[in-house]
Design a binder for these strands. Structure first.
Lengths: 351, 351
DNA sequence: CTGAAAGCGCTTACAG
DNA sequence: CTGAAAGCGCTTACAG
């Protein structure tokens, strides 16, 4: 345990120098000089000394006495995803002006690590939390009791991107169902009659909603609901070969799909890659729609559902701050609209 | 300023319940029971009560008295980049077991924001900092006095990925020069005689080193140093069209380049895109090498210099902790080796 | 082996 | 308008 140099300036010293009491300094620092009718000249002297010496009240002492840290915790499965970056940007857009600091931590798709990280943040006295929680693969045991405990506790929480069953909470999500519906409808309008659904086999609200949106579009177009062979599910492990096998089998069937709707960008890229190995180019030979935008200068040829991530971050932070002050109910749900990116659906096979 | 519920359990209460003094509890909690020869039975009772009531000493009180926060700050220009994610992973690999928490913040390529964010972290009492600092475009005014001030201060700092001139500091970087040399040498071995260098026009050690490595390779192969028309520089703004214009002009010249070495992945993708619009495919018509790995299932066809980011994170954290304890000198420089990824250099034009 | 006491740097009733 | 005093929850000499 090393010792750090003591803060050079303390309130005590400052007060002594100016010949006033610490109370007076503290009051002026918090902008309460009018309320306590402190002589303007005194207040002025204090302000000048503070500015000149670069004095800032010790964070730990302030937090200890005020029971407020000015920090909000942000927990995501990973930091590497445009998703993350943009949501964080939105959050910071809001927290910064409000004099809060966003403290980012990652749970790396590990519920145990998630629990640990949340515990750390709580211990560090965060005033609120924004969380994109982990989700289990179907059939996987998943213990989210730490989230339930958290939501029952005193610290305000806003979930982003996904909601939790069985427990009331505040959330900000995108219109997953509507986006999936629009994207699928576009595939159908381009001539597809046998779209194939590809997704992570993961049990989470956003994915469920996207599947529902996919089915909505089929129903609206009077296309019969897909058989199980047109629902392809895969594990998150990018190196798993389950998708490869399923896809090969499906494409060699006598009535192969004539388009793809994929729920996530990563799996879409993998699907596109696997198809290309079978000699099928997207979108030339077969069109594909998916959630997520293309990175700059790397057009994937897919129809992209653009997600309003920055906006989601802003709204989540906004909602959290309102929950902290009590201005918003802690079970408010916000759904952000999505839109289709300008698309390439040229030459669909079924057209 | 809302009030949070007070922590339910305090050391005082715990001591009262057990009929011992707070000192005894504190000592046992810090594992000093042997040193102070506290009766094992007493220590045992205390440990049990602590575990059973889930007591943890108040963070702010502990930090206030111990002058140690257990937090290390991590500041990067952006969170969205594989670079970031991997370095953070490496950092957490090290800090977690050592009972430190990594607190991530972003400076968004803005020196002013960088200064603010660093200030925030210092105010929050971080025990050390790991920073990938911002860098100016050539000719741009750049004030990094906040970094110089920081490096002269009491808080240990390790810079990653790039170093600073004019000021001693600790750093962990990759072998930029060696990687660029190897990549360029590979282009030359594949038959290139007029490689073109493309880079961000940015004044930072890593980029300078890559250019030097590029020139090293040419010199070693007895190829004359490139003329200025084979050094293409562009701004960071992904929508800038300076590169597009320069590239078109260069490719329509009578002796166009027969390969490309690009310093960063983003610019490489842009270059590849612009070439494809001129009808040139990478690597079929023209080979390209660059720093950074391809994302999964999106082979770019480029020769990639794989960067040891996780390792860099680990070493940076390691070095920081050693600097904190005084075990390492605060001006230690570490260079991590890089390697070429299995490559596609097929059918180079000049071969 | 253990406790009373001072101290970390700030906030906040409470007197005047 | 301003100060003396108690308190936030912990740590750490110091005395026994």
């Amino acid at each position: 345990m090393m010792e750090k140099l003591p803060d050079n300036v303390t309130m005590k010293r400052l007060a002594q120098q100016l010949g006033v009491s610490r109370t007076t300094v503290s009051l002026v620092l918090k902008g309460q000089e009018r309320k306590y009718r402190i002589r303007e000249e005194t207040a002025q002297r204090i302000r000048e000394a503070v500015a000149q010496q670069g004095f800032r009240p010790n964070y730990f002492a302030t937090a200890l006495t005020s029971r407020r840290s000015g920090v909000i915790g942000v927990v995501f499965p990973n930091v590497f995803e445009a998703f993350m970056s943009e949501v964080v940007k939105g959050i910071e857009d809001v927290t910064h002006p409000a004099d809060y600091t966003a403290m980012i931590a990652t749970s790396r798709f590990d519920p145990l690590l998630e629990a640990r990280v949340l515990d750390q943040l709580l211990h560090r006295g965060v005033d609120g939390l924004i969380i994109a929680c982990n989700a289990p693969f179907r059939g996987e045991p998943y213990d989210c009791s730490h989230l339930h405990r958290l939501l029952s506790g005193p610290v305000p929480v806003v979930l982003v991107d996904r909601t939790l069953r069985d427990h009331p909470h505040a959330s900000v999500v995108q219109d997953d169902r509507g986006g999936a519906r629009k994207a699928t409808a576009a595939l159908l309008r381009a001539g597809s009659r046998r779209p194939c659904y590809v997704s992570l086999d993961i049990d989470v609200s956003s994915i469920r909603d996207r599947r529902d949106g996919f089915l909505d579009a089929l129903r609206e177009a009077n296309i019969r609901q897909p058989r199980s062979r047109d629902i392809l599910l895969t594990r998150r492990d990018p190196d798993a070969d389950d998708l490869s096998l399923a896809l090969e089998k499906r494409m060699s069937h006598r009535d192969p799909p004539d388009s793809f709707f994929v729920t996530t960008a990563g799996i879409a890229m993998k699907t596109r890659y696997l198809l290309s190995r079978m000699g099928l180019q997207v979108p030339k030979n077969i069109p594909m729609a998916r959630f997520g935008a293309d990175p700059p200068y790397s057009p994937s040829g897919m129809l992209c559902v653009e997600q309003p991530h920055v906006d989601m971050g802003r709204r989540a932070a906004q909602l959290l701050m309102e929950t902290i002050t009590g201005a918003a109910r802690p079970d408010t749900h916000i759904v952000c609209p999505v839109r289709l990116a300008p698309a390439h659906l040229s030459r669909s096979k079924g057209a």
